[in-house]
Design a protein around this nucleic acid. Structure first.
Length: 484
RNA sequence: GGCGCGUUGGAGAAGCGGCUUAACUCACCAGCCUUUCACGCUGGCAUUCACGGGUUCGAAUCCCGUACGCGUCACCA
């Protein structure tokens, strides 16, 4: 088998979309699995919408996910350049070749003319398709148009009969009649090639062996194959992966929530969780496990287990996966990730003291098992900060009215006073002693303390909450809740 | 409208002619663990695979039609 060379070829017209990230991931997994090469190519031929900023976003999003590439605009490679706007002369050369061979032609039709054709075809109930008007212009006509100042586009001459058969790795055999394909534009009037033309030239020149991309490109594929055939080039293997749909089964869009990789990053998702989730979007493992590291994915991934049916973006599942990774990563890492979130929310200054860092670390330890995304830590912050405590409901109020409460609180005060510093292990021990000495049992001791300190019936372990609060805050809170 | 693709439980998703009385995961319910919540563990949760025909000894799996959804028909990628 020849060397596997795959590519991810986004157009830099916005932040990296979750669907794009999934295409990039699949390509990356294939490249690594078969010890091939991954090419990153920037398709920036849409001058209007492309931006450097989007390009930067694509680079950083991919890196964040842990996807890297062997050749690309930032690192170069033997087929450089990797930005289409830097390859314009190459496309011109090949377009010229097609024109000379009679496989492409200049078209001078104006937008108005084309629109009129379209309307007429629609009115007659026909498929709108290029009329072929400029297919056989004489040299004279051409000069006349040029003299009028018209800027031509170059159109590919599509054979009028025959069909294009695609042997797609995930979709099987798909056929398209040539008849349904009009002569399409390959070079715009400003001299920039269109997508359908540039991809083919680049994929061929860059020796891409497998084109793995989203299903929306499936109906473009016959046009591209026609170009391969016009040049007599060997075609790559195609694999069109299904679209990503939202919960309502329509194409994933802003309406469904976050759609870009950066958004997930900002919402407190871990890159390995996003990668794991993305891999499951359209692909399924043979075994029962669903949690995989990048290494495992590289080992297990294969295109023949990629499904044809559309992949539905299940936010609940992403949350669950993210929660899993949060529970299984280190406190140090979570602390580092939590700091900017807490800073932004005003819980921390921009420069941290050792003491503040330790404080965050304790909070993170306390809530680690409860989080599904890092920013959920903010939901727990009222437990750890502020002097005032709101009793959450009547039930909580009732807990504080139980008869053993004064005794429990007194014991707590005594125990805490005996301790020089509050740390989880010591507090845990002290609490157990209270249970033992009072002979009241767990619930009657823990629940009043919990409610008195936090106002809530549920929450993280008390032996974490107490050290986080510190003696001073504890006194203030006790005073606050008990004298109401 | 033409062309192309899809349709399995509350949700995601395997299975692609007999081994399926339809995996697995999430959610949900019950029990256990536990000071609470959460985590973890155990068990329960589709007689049925959009619908209607057909092929076959046998169909979720193959064929045809209908419905619904999605994609695409650009000088966007």
């Amino acid at each position: 088998m020849e060397k596997v060379r795959v590519r991810f070829a986004p157009s830099p017209t916005g932040p990296l979309h979750i669907g794009g990230a999934r295409s990039a991931l699949f390509n990356y997994l294939i490249a690594r699995k078969y010890k091939g090469e991954m090419v990153l190519r920037i398709e920036d031929t849409d001058l209007e919408r492309s931006s450097k900023e989007s390009e930067e976003n694509i680079f950083s999003s991919l890196k964040w996910l842990g996807i890297d590439w062997d050749e690309g605009p930032d690192i170069g490679g033997k087929f450089a350049p990797y930005r289409q706007t830097e390859r314009l002369d190459i496309y011109t050369k090949y377009a010229q070749q097609l024109i000379e061979n009679g496989q492409a032609f200049y078209c001078f039709c104006s937008e108005e003319e084309l629109e009129k054709d379209r309307q007429e075809a629609m009115a007659k109930g026909e498929t709108p398709k290029y009329s072929g008007r400029c297919r056989n212009l004489t040299e004279e006509q051409r000069q006349k148009f040029l003299a009028e100042g018209r800027k031509p586009v170059v159109r590919f001459k599509v054979p009028e009969t025959g069909e294009v058969v695609i042997e797609d790795l995930v979709r099987g055999t798909v056929r398209f009649e040539n008849e349904g394909i009009g002569d399409f534009v390959i070079v715009k009037s400003d001299g920039i090639p269109t997508y359908n033309f540039a991809v083919v030239i680049d994929d061929h020149l860059m020796e891409i062996s497998h084109v793995v991309r989203a299903e929306e490109h499936l109906s473009n594929t016959p046009r591209q194959i026609l170009i391969y055939e016009a040049f007599g080039w060997e075609k790559p293997v195609f694999a069109h992966i299904s679209l990503i749909l939202g919960k309502d089964k329509t194409k994933m869009s802003k309406r469904h929530g976050a759609t870009s990789v950066v958004q997930y990053r900002e919402l407190g998702y871990l890159p390995e969780a996003v990668v794991n989730f993305l891999a499951l979007l359209g692909w399924s493992p043979q075994e029962e496990e669903e949690i995989f590291t990048m290494e495992e994915l590289i080992q297990k991934f294969s295109l023949d287990r990629v499904a044809k049916n559309p992949a539905v973006f299940d936010m609940e599942k992403l949350r669950w996966i993210n929660g899993y990774y949060i529970r299984h990563t280190s406190i140090e890492r979570l602390t580092e990730l939590a700091i900017p979130i807490l800073e932004k929310a005003g819980y921390l200054p921009s420069e941290l003291t050792e003491k503040e860092y330790e404080w965050v670390k304790l909070i993170v330890t306390a809530v680690q098992e409860k989080l599904h995304s890092l920013n959920e830590i903010l939901d727990y912050m009222p437990i750890f900060t502020g002097e005032k405590v709101e009793l959450e409901n009547e039930e909580a109020k009732a807990v504080l009215e139980e008869e053993q409460v004064p005794q429990v609180i007194e014991l707590l005060r005594t125990k805490l006073a005996e301790m020089h510093t509050l740390e989880p292990e010591g507090v845990k021990k002290a609490l157990k002693e209270i249970v033992k000495e009072s002979k009241l049992g767990g619930r009657k001791v823990y629940m009043p303390i919990r409610v008195a300190l936090t106002g809530q019936m549920h929450g993280p372990e008390l032996y974490y909450i107490i050290p986080v609060l510190g003696k001073e805050l504890i006194e203030k809170r006790l005073a606050n809740t008990l004298h109401k």
